[in-house]
Design a protein around this nucleic acid. Structure first.
Length: 780
DNA sequence: AGGGGCTTCAGTTCG
DNA sequence: TGCGAACTGAAGCCCCTC
């Protein structure tokens, strides 16, 4: 039987002659695009038998019923674990999805059945989990050649004879073909509406740097859309990349295509794009990726705009490519010469998008490979679903059944401990961090939903968590320990490999991005355990991890005194100590006492604390300024207050006193008063977190959004509103104006001085006993 | 009517 | 559509004084 090696790019379920089948899309080791049918995996679920119930009776009962329930191919008894407990289950295999769905509805009420399990796992996901198939991994599969259907755009098509198997550590992935695109749709009135506003241009760029532009002819965009669709067919990309394309570009194109009677044949089977899980758009046989989704994994970039991301990656210089909003775009479209300008802008934008994609792809591929979510899904999936997938994979290793996703009410619990900082300037401060504190504590004490021992149950030799009293079984590894230790080992393995690879080498980046993916997942597991939507939700687990964390940091604080080290501050897993000679000894002691590793994370030559927790600024040994939590690093303050604060902090920390900073603030405020700073530094950005109609209060950003809404600009949850406060009487929200509508002349400098600058300056100066009061309000 | 003091709402960041 | 802790500004309310 011939064998094929392939790298899995996409997977979907389909029907062949009415029978369920899986289609795997990939690239073989000769770079050919391949499609592989697998019809050897009929849908299935498990019936969990009640404790003490003879599962054979259930099985018999179903066999009797099966005339009515029809469509059952196979039944079998198995022993599996469910939340740690060994249980009897009945495996039920169906000929098709409809039969499974019917039975899943009827059987939970059958006699002796506690629950139907794993019917709520997507078919293609269950196929991969049960078969050990993994996205963005190399596999080997026995096949027979199948004729290439006329509509299928691949080099080879096969039929799987046996299940594909992952080939471990096959090294790097294949070279993938990418296509980036963006669409230009200025709104004729307010936001563009597909019912009336045509697509004026579609801009594409392939990975090799070749671009193509499809322009509407007058108001007719049919040929442009058709041209785009044909271009995709011709270029046959593996990855289709957009920015905000799940929410805007694709839905818009789909709607315009519908109106124009055009078939968007973008899938490898000639399919149109379709809406899939996690609200993303899926293109069969390819991976559709929205870079905007991946930006959530880069918290350093505050503004969710392509320009901000490109600046962060140093793909463009600051201010090189503006980010035009809908108002500016429509305005430019109407301007003389604006259309030519917009075309140039979109060509540039699409090229920048491609470069961002190239920078991000190693990360996305690693994330897909580790979590087991297909590449296009993993980008769009929220943290909780990524970990859910990771856990489902882990559960198979332990023979654990996958619990149902349930709707549960939110239950709060006590979290990490934060110390009150000692305000003022401190010198030579060492920051010690517990390394991956929550994951390590959960591993150390086997904290997991399947090792939890409820009150009243006899669990000999269980470990009891201090303060909260929850008990967890020792002995057999729990799911969390199993999953976390695999991640931890992977991280160590990557670190080891990285040592032998020079930094500029492409494989260095692949590994470094993989390490970042592992790290993100490691850190997400604790939060996942306390998320009520998690399949393996357990308040006791999350609460215990938090309690163990508090115990660890408390222990570290107690020990500090004995080593002559004075704690200045601490938050969750870190403590800030005034450096002393016995620090190494101390680190050893804390590790002995807590069982988890603690290391020196940072050393501040000088650090400034105010009265608040979670906010400080320090000078690192390198001479770099490190600002944490303060306005200067927040996205919801004006550029003016951020710039002034950063300037003041630099001076205070380098001079060791407030005098220079006071002068700096004075002069900065006078610049603001005379408007000698750029307009954009007056703009305040805030994100809408819910639909406009649900706002009960008149907040400034909400009122600014209302003004846009009045002009037909549609804004919803997740959209950012940039506004300035203008001169005049009345409440602040009455004077908030979308920045695109305002000029620098209208800006109320006094508002910025009183509400954005003085509070910020006085928080710093008051530490030194300088009461700001009116001192900064008028010049001199 | 207007101000002080307090609570609530909203958004964002830390770890 | 990970968690809780924490901060801040603005609005919104009550209460008091005038």
């Amino acid at each position: 039987m011939p064998k094929v090696k392939f790298w899995l790019l996409d997977i979907n379920d389909a029907l062949i002659d009415g029978a369920p089948a899986i289609r795997l899309w990939g690239i073989d080791d000769a770079g050919r695009r391949v499609a592989i049918w697998d019809r050897n995996f009929p849908p299935r679920f498990f019936l969990l038998a009640n404790r003490g119930e003879d599962p054979a009776l259930i099985l018999e009962g179903i066999r009797r019923l099966s005339r009515e329930l029809c469509g059952i191919l196979d039944l079998g008894l198995e022993r599996k674990r469910y939340l740690g407990e060994e249980r009897n289950v009945v495996r039920v295999v169906f000929k098709d999805h409809e039969s499974l769905a019917k039975s899943a509805e009827a059987l939970p009420n059958a006699k002796g059945v506690e629950a139907v399990l794993e019917d709520d796992v997507r078919f293609s996901m269950k196929y991969m989990i049960d078969g050990g198939v993994r996205p963005c991994s190399w596999h080997e599969v026995e096949v027979q050649e199948a004729p290439i259907e006329q509509s299928i755009r691949v080099d080879r098509a096969y039929e799987a004879v046996s299940p594909p198997r992952v080939i471990e550590s096959q090294g790097e992935g294949p070279s993938l073909r990418s296509l980036a695109f963006s669409i230009l749709c200025p709104g004729s009135r307010g936001s563009p509406r597909p019912s009336v506003d045509p697509v004026r241009g579609i801009f594409v760029e392939s990975g090799s740097g070749e671009g193509e532009v499809f322009l509407a002819e007058g108001d007719r965009d049919s040929s442009a859309i058709r041209g785009f669709s044909e271009f995709i067919e011709r270029a046959d990309p593996d990855l289709i990349v957009g920015f905000g394309s799940n929410r805007f570009d694709w839905p818009y194109l789909m709607e315009r295509a519908k109106l124009g009677g055009i078939h968007l044949k973008v899938g490898r089977g000639g399919e149109p794009p379709h809406r899939s899980v996690y609200g993303h758009i899926s293109v069969t046989g390819r991976a559709n990726i929205d870079i905007l989704n991946l930006m959530d994994d880069i918290p350093e970039v505050k503004q969710k705009a392509l320009a901000s991301l490109a600046e962060f990656f140093s793909i463009i210089r600051k201010g090189e490519m503006p980010d035009l909003d809908e108002v500016e775009l429509a305005r430019e479209w109407r301007n003389a010469g604006g259309r030519e300008h917009l075309r140039e802008y979109f060509v540039k934008r699409t090229g920048v998008l491609m470069k961002c994609h190239e920078t991000l792809m190693d990360f996305a591929i690693a994330l897909s490979n580790i979590t087991g979510l297909p590449l296009d899904q993993v980008a769009a999936a929220a943290v909780g679903f990524r970990v859910d997938s990771l856990m489902m994979r882990g559960s198979r290793m332990l023979g654990e059944l996958i619990p149902k996703r349930e709707e549960r009410p939110h239950v709060a619990y006590k979290g990490g401990m934060v110390l009150q900082p000692k305000p003022g300037l401190h010198e030579n401060i060492v920051v010690l961090d517990f390394k991956s504190m929550y994951p390590n504590l959960m591993m150390l004490y086997n904290i997991s939903p399947d090792t939890y021992c409820p009150p009243g149950e006899d669990c000999s030799e269980a470990f009891e968590v201090p303060e909260v009293g929850h008990r967890f079984r020792r002995g057999r590894d729990g799911l969390y320990r199993a999953v976390l230790s695999k991640l931890m080992e992977e991280r160590e393995r990557i670190k080891e490999k990285l040592k032998g690879i020079p930094k500029g080498d492409p494989s260095h980046k692949v590994l470094a991005e993989r390490e970042r993916a592992v790290k993100i997942l490691l850190n997400a597991c604790y939060g996942y355990s306390g998320w009520t939507g998690a399949r393996w939700y357990s308040k006791e687990v999350a609460e215990s991890a938090a309690a163990l964390g508090r115990a660890a940091i408390t222990k570290a604080l107690e020990e500090a005194r004995g080593f002559g080290l004075e704690p200045i501050y601490g938050d969750t897993d870190s403590i800030f100590l005034k450096s002393g000679p016995k620090i190494e000894e101390y680190v050893e002691r804390v590790m002995q006492e807590t069982g988890i590793e603690i290391k020196i994370d940072k050393i501040y030559k000088r650090i400034l604390f105010m009265e608040s927790k979670k906010r400080y600024a320090g000078l690192l040994e390198s001479g770099d300024l490190d600002v944490v939590g303060l306005e200067a690093v927040r996205g919801d303050w004006s550029g003016a207050s951020k710039a002034m604060q950063e300037g003041m902090l630099k001076i205070v920390l380098s001079e060791g006193g407030p005098n220079g900073a006071l002068e700096f603030a004075r002069s900065y405020i006078s610049d603001v008063r005379s408007k000698a700073i750029p307009f954009r530094d007056f703009v305040i950005w805030k994100t809408l977190t819910k639909p406009m109609r649900e706002y009960e209060v008149k907040a400034p950003h909400v009122e600014a959004a209302r003004r846009l809404l009045a002009d037909g600009i549609e804004l919803g949850p997740g959209d950012s509103v940039g506004y300035v406060i203008t001169k005049g009487a009345g409440k602040i929200h009455e004077r908030a104006k979308p920045y695109a509508y305002a000029t620098i002349e209208e800006v109320d400098a006094e508002y910025y001085i009183n509400n954005q600058l003085i509070p910020v300056a006085s928080r710093i100066l008051s530490i030194f006993g300088i009461a700001v009061g009116r001192m900064l309000e008028s010049p001199g």
